[in-house]
Amino acid sequence: MTLAAVVLELALVVATMLAVATLVVVGPRPVATALSDFRWRLRACLLPLAALAVVLLLRWATVDVVVRLEREVVGTPVTSYLFEFERLVFPEYPVAALQSFQTPEVTAYFVFVYIYGYAFLLLFPFIAYFALEEMEELSTLIVAFAVNYGVGLVCYVLFLSMGPRNLEPTLFEGLLYDAFPQSRTLTNQVNQNTNVFPSLHSSLSMTVFFIAWQTREKYPLWVPISGVLAISVVVSTMYLGIHWFLDVVAGTALAAASVYVARNYTIESAVGGIRGYLDGRLGRNGRPDRD
């Protein structure tokens, strides 16, 4: 299957899931209202959107530089530490333990969750929070995503690591690419196999879940759905042999931190803070004559 075919299939499945969830969780009326006055809504979260766009663009544009920087200059190999940690701390390797429950049905479920469930989980909150009366939640979501991607990018440059399936094919199976090799056509476009620590699958999914919990009064139904999906995604990254236990732990911690940051700081305040700091510096050192 070509890339286009894989993407088309993904788009169709995820669009269906989004449509159903929108009808059930949000309801048609709020969506219609939100669409009718989308201008102020967009304007309200323009800055966070711009920040996310910058991070994503940076990630996309620097991929070649980052790969060389990581592999040839600054990257510290950490795979063996992740592996040793599991060997010394647990009676059995967590990934191997999960894979011992392997059946074709379980594998199919986790492959579905890892690809389609994950895409749905990341996209649905955009619709749901867009349909709210205020754009605060949407801004939080977008800032949290930007923090996730930004920190992830830095970690991927600093830590050169590979997943369980790549280190140890005799202990851990690469279930995703065995069961569904075409998925690599997709993941190759967005990732390298040395981007393992932390797990962005885990961090973004848990971010969605944490924010869902904070907005439980507005969308009570979304809490259990996102909870089950997010935890399934987290488990799937290990079950499919892609991430280590510590990747997932780090991903979850990153999720908590990014939600905290997004709750307590806005892009405006961050920009204001930086401007204030620069003004202070320049005022004192750069332009002493004016005083």
Binding site: M1, Y177, D178, P181, Q182, R184, T185, T187
Partner: peptide
């Protein structure tokens, strides 16, 4: 050029 051996076999 396929991304992995499974897709090449497909």
């Amino acid at each position: 050029i396929d991304p992995n051996v499974g897709t090449m076999m497909d």
